[in-house]
Amino acid sequence: MMPIQEFLKGINTNDVVRRNIPMGRGMGYPVLKIVGERLLISVFYYRSILHPEDKTLLMPPEYMLTFDYPSGKLVSFENLRLHSQYSSVNFDKPVGTFRHEAIRHLNKTEYRDKKEQLFAAVDRLIAHLGGEGEFHSQDEKELAELYGMMTEPCLHPFYRALSPQFYARYIEKKEDRHVSEK
């Protein structure tokens, strides 16, 4: 099974990205979708303007891409600046800053470790979906905790747009869900 980090590295350096996404756009965390018999991986690319001391500005994602896993074939490419659904978004105005509250206590090593944990949990989920391993309720809980912790709250609407089902299951905080259900 191809580890998700290797898959994402392949995306980052493939021709679609090289040709269509301006440098300086970073990839968000991957979101999984199952369509028919295929597992798809969706990501968005967004710009961050680096500033030290937790003042890095996060701009709205501009591109959403979906790839077939593990072949890496492009399934869809959306330039959100040209998408009517996002016409009200000001892509030149930050939506938030890095780091957000949930990860502010982590030092650089701890932050990288959490990312590794998240990707390892995603690998276990992908393996399970491919019939290669178990994915218990504890794994499910861990993955949700890691996604909830590591994803930037200001980018959550865009994660939801990538896959409402994945978002509701792994990213949306329970209290947020409760409020939105009201």
Binding site: M23, G24, S48, L50
Partner: peptide
């Protein structure tokens, strides 16, 4: 060349940045 500028900018060592080509 396209590079990840954070990896060569010594002044940005404390930034928690992803590995992306962000600079030429």
């Amino acid at each position: 060349v396209a590079v990840d500028g954070n990896e060569i900018w010594e002044g940005n060592q404390d930034v928690y940045a992803p590995n992306n080509p962000n600079h030429a």
